[in-house]
Amino acid sequence: MERTPQVAKEAWEPRIVAFLCRWCSYAGADLAGVSRLSYPPTTRVILVPCSSRISPYHITKALMAGADGVLVSGCHPGDCHYLTGNLVARRKFIVLKRLLAYLGIEEARVLFSWISASEGEEFAELIREITEKVRAVGPFRGFLREETRDTHV
């Protein structure tokens, strides 16, 4: 997959793909919006039925296609609309997160969170926080690239 050319570093803003579950986190994001809370416009939200719908394919594909960071957010444990989807997802994500870190991808690029429908303020705060985390590690230049070997840290 070809990556679009990076813009100059001064103008660079992180691009974060956020996979949000439709029952909790997406509603939380909605609440942040209707409450007129402000947070950085760095996320591109993708609505999914459940955090367990997200597989490592989606996360790695987002990075391969030009995202600087990926967020997956779902219901708090116990609140899943499908009862246990988020618990299965939790197992999958911890293995993936550790694996990507082991392979040398900065940990800040792949983030997981639980946000409920009532947590508009928490959602806004989460986006502020992860935007800063991703900003700190800089633009993602692609997997296994020369440039990934001595970046930004």
């Binding site: 997959m1 394919y57 790695t60 594909k61 391969m64 694996l99 997997f143 690239r145």
Partner: peptide, 24 residues
Amino acid sequence: AWMTPALEPGNIFFYHVNRMMHMA
């Protein structure tokens, strides 16, 4: 397509990470 067969770092990495996840 999730990945293309082009012999490039992105595709190679995508293949190995996802295959590893299948083997977990």
